[in-house]
Design a protein around this nucleic acid. Sequence first.
DNA 1: CATTATTGTGAACAATAGCTCAGGTTTTGG
DNA 2: CCAAAACCTGAGCTATTGTTCACAATAATG
Lengths: 206, 206
Amino acid sequence: MPSADRRLQPRRTPRQVRAELTRERILAAAAHVFAEHGYAAGTTNRIAERARISIGSLYQYFPNKDAILAQLLMRHLDRGTWTQADQLDLSPGTLEATVRALVRDAIDNHGDDPQLLRIMIEEAPMSRELLETIDRHGRERGAQVRDLLARHPDVHVRDIDTAAELIMVTVELNTHKLMADPRTIPVETFEQELVDMVTRYLRGDR
Amino acid sequence: MPSADRRLQPRRTPRQVRAELTRERILAAAAHVFAEHGYAAGTTNRIAERARISIGSLYQYFPNKDAILAQLLMRHLDRGTWTQADQLDLSPGTLEATVRALVRDAIDNHGDDPQLLRIMIEEAPMSRELLETIDRHGRERGAQVRDLLARHPDVHVRDIDTAAELIMVTVELNTHKLMADPRTIPVETFEQELVDMVTRYLRGDR
DNA sequence: CATTATTGTGAACAATAGCTCAGGTTTTGG
DNA sequence: CCAAAACCTGAGCTATTGTTCACAATAATG
């Protein structure tokens, strides 16, 4: 069992465009290979083959296999946007609209390649660096959701923090599950029901 | 990447008590090793070592590594009970009590060794046989929940099947997440909030 | 007690995967 | 144009792991 704290920095940083291109080819190939074979069976040689570069080149820009998936996951996290929710910070609407924005963002962020996302979430070897990044993103997002709830007049829950945590997990995991599975429920139906559930929960009172 | 359809039957079936005991030692050891190291790093030699039997003996009762985890998962599934929900079939109560029973059962079934459960759910190589078993259990349980909802007068949702699916996933995944993670939320709080959310959703009609 | 069936052993094999390195090719800079 | 830096190559090394098999030990049988 390899330690999760091996270095993730490349041994050589690209200086020519050619090199940067190679790096991109490797990442693109890795995304495909991991999505198709999983992490364990997605071998570095297969990735190199798919990227049409030699295995040696791969190890010029990535110190080890873990670093490749870590890089992909980092990118996903940094690229992940919460545009609809962000808008609400400026002009809030009904509670249902707010919840819908959260759900839509979650769905959007699972849009391209849910397979790869599944691998990244479930099989990625977690380095300390990676865990910190994930944690940071989680906290930032948690704070955002918390604020959204705190400011909305229709929210009535016992404890804001608990509620924020619960609905984040619920939205995230349900979306993840739906997108990864063979579509048992149409997305629109799923969205509507999930929105209903969360909204009614937050509205509380009764 | 090994095919997921290798045979899962042992090459030798125990006939003496001594053999049956060895089988149990292997399974117990495997549970510990998998829980501690994960599936990939939980090597067969390590399992044999922990079980204090030779690696050869291990392969007398399990044709390969996959079969060991498969066996553990099968056992978990077959042992999994839904006692509280079952009771409701006989004497139904309030909607909240019904939902609470479902949640409690889910929590109970994650009770011992959530680590191992995580490994089994997320890393187990799925053979066709295993998938079928899981599918069967899922359907049986789905039908039970569906019936419970259909019979309860306070349930008001657009579509019973969709609702059953949604709340099953929600309860299951939220519980799974909570039990695996370092406890951020106390179980009691979590239970109450989850029950509230699901109940309000099912009660519908705002 | 003798024979057979069952169970246990562990060194060694084969397969595979991550990764290195010595040397070749291309680009850059002066 | 040419030397140095950057980049690329891929055969093969190292390490690990799942698995086998010839043999030994133990228990059942009659």
